[in-house]
């Protein structure tokens, strides 16, 4: 064994520890430390984001508002779901009040108006401002460590988060930075109960009030994927809670 290789092994052993020796709690501790600390994340109760929503090759101005308790609202200008055009003067507005997902959208050509319960449930879960890993026991999330995996060549710890709804969201945490690179889930949707895989990819982490948030999110779906490119994220703005309630003309699910 060469001297250089021996030193490398020693450094690895003294460093972050062999992945197999890490526990779920170890990984979570490193994750929240990397984000900026649990206390800082807990102090963030609301977020306001602005940027661009990219869908089907079109860019749309985006504003979104988030409140702890799985409440969110996003307003996307000119968006035509399933369409190829930008509809000026129109916005798709959708959100969740913590238990119900809702959409206001009059551009669907009378089609695709229903929102599958699985999609709604996942969207509500994803509206957790602090993420599914934070305070997971109180939320009823069961987390197990699935060992190391791979995200486009980057080694990552895989944490399987089972939600009370039964959905299993596998989080991939970069082995070095402990930031979430990817999250994936498979649901069954539609009349034929087809498997519907989704994956979220996170990049461009920047500090907001001392906590790292991804400023680029890519949501991969079998048909239409989408990107969120944020120009700004503001922590703890004052928000009127009524904005998270479904408007009278909204389609709601479940």
């Amino acid at each position: 064994m060469s001297f250089r290789f021996s030193v490398a092994l020693l450094l690895a052993a003294l460093g972050q520890g062999a992945p197999s020796e890490m526990t779920t709690e170890d990984i979570l501790d490193r994750h929240f430390e990397a984000l900026g600390g649990r206390h800082r994340l807990e102090a963030i109760r609301t977020l306001e984001k602005a940027g661009t929503y990219v869908y089907n090759g079109q860019e749309h101005p985006l504003r979104s508002f988030h409140l702890v308790g799985n409440k969110y609202r996003e307003e996307i200008d000119g968006l035509v779901i399933w369409g190829a055009s930008v509809k000026e003067g129109h916005s798709v507005i959708r959100g969740a009040d913590g238990t119900t997902y809702w959409v206001v959208d009059d551009t669907r050509y009378g089609r695709f108006r229903e929102v599958a319960n699985a999609r709604a449930s996942l969207t509500i879960a994803d509206a957790d401002l602090q993420g599914a890993l934070f305070d997971h026991e109180r939320k009823g999330h069961v987390i197990t460590y699935d060992g190391l995996g791979d995200v486009e060549g980057a080694s990552a710890h895989r944490l399987r988060v089972t939600l009370p709804s039964g959905f299993e969201l596998v989080h991939f945490l970069d082995e070095t930075s402990f930031l979430v690179l990817k999250k994936e889930v498979v649901t069954k949707e539609g009349a034929r109960d087809l498997e519907h895989p989704r994956a979220w990819f996170y990049e461009d982490y920047r500090a907001v009030d001392g906590v790292l948030f991804p400023f680029w999110i890519y949501v991969e779906e079998p048909i239409f994927s989408r990107e969120y490119v944020f120009d700004s994220i503001v922590a703890n703005p004052s928000l009127d809670e009524s904005i998270f309630e479904a408007p009278p003309d909204a389609i709601k699910s479940p």
Partner: peptide, 11 residues
């Protein structure tokens, strides 16, 4: 086997 990947270019 994957060799590399690049996102942000859409379809």
């Amino acid at each position: 086997e994957p060799r590399w990947a690049k996102r942000g270019l859409g379809k």
